[in-house]
């Protein structure tokens, strides 16, 4: 297995607050890797650090064997794309779906835009009827599909998913998760997915890392969650909490 994404002892500091205290992980090509934790665990910060949205204080990040510098170049953004948590906030309110999808094509200079937009909309199950709508004319699930289409249109090899379904209803979540699995299979993508929901991660990922207070608690295979084969108390607590309320 070749390493697609390698994070080595990455630290992130915001105004003296240590959001990440040296986290390492290694994601193989075609693998789906999950990051689980509660708020303040640093899971989203790690994702944003990889994407270049927050500055890394120390440590190394490598994509496809190439160590990334301080500034990400255009080539990086062809390879790595991201889907955000809030489908209401991640689409520009004054642009139609068409404009939203055209933008990445224009930036990277793709020639056959018309075709690609049509194909991208079909791929996420929206069809051309949605092409000239504004985001306020779409439901939450449809917006998230547009966001996925926008991320996929430049044909990346790594998709960073920041709680892509936590703002959606359960039934819509199922549809979006199925869609994500489908595109991953079709395009042989590598996923790095963040969620607070153990069940979602267990469903979507092969391996996962539990995080707390900016540090890794433990790394394990997703199948270990089903068999309760975990070594850390914190993971056990998360597992128990995900089962629902138990009257004591």
């Amino acid at each position: 297995m070749t390493s697609m994404l390698r994070v080595d002892q990455v630290k992130v500091v915001f105004d003296h607050f240590r959001a990440l205290r040296g986290v390492s992980l290694d994601v193989a090509q075609g693998e789906s890797f999950g990051l689980v934790g509660e708020s303040g665990s640093g899971k989203s910060t790690l994702l944003r650090a990889i994407a270049g949205l927050v500055p890394v204080a120390s440590g190394k990040i490598a994509v496809g064997g190439q160590v990334l510098g301080r500034k990400r170049d255009k080539e990086f953004y062809r390879k790595v794309q991201m889907v955000f948590q809030d489908p209401y906030g991640s689409l520009h309110p004054r642009q139609t779906v068409d404009r939203l999808l055209q933008e990445p094509l224009a930036i990277h200079g793709f020639p056959d835009g018309e075709q690609r937009i049509r194909r991208a909309l079909d791929e996420v199950g929206l069809g051309s009827g949605f092409r000239f709508r504004y985001s306020h004319q779409l439901s939450g699930g449809q917006r998230q599909r547009v966001a996925i289409a926008r991320a996929l249109i430049v044909e990346p090899s790594i998709l960073l998913l920041d709680e892509p379904t936590s703002a959606l209803d359960a039934s819509v979540q199922a549809e979006v998760l199925n869609l994500l699995e489908q595109v991953r299979r079709d395009r042989k993508l590598t996923f790095l997915m963040v969620s607070h929901d153990l069940a979602v991660i267990a469903h979507m990922c092969e391996r996962l890392m539990v995080m707390q207070n900016g540090e890794a608690v433990e790394s394990l295979a997703a199948s270990a969650l089903g068999t309760r084969d975990v070594s850390q108390d914190y993971t056990r607590r998360l597992l128990k909490a995900s089962e629902g309320f138990v009257r004591t």
Binding site: A174, L177, V200, A202, H203
Partner: peptide, 20 residues
């Protein structure tokens, strides 16, 4: 039933998830 079904579970391997 659909609402209960469509949620991913830790100890079940259902791909794809049933949708409503």
């Amino acid at each position: 039933r659909g609402l209960l079904d469509c949620m991913p579970r830790i100890d079940a391997d259902r791909h794809p998830l049933p949708v409503l």
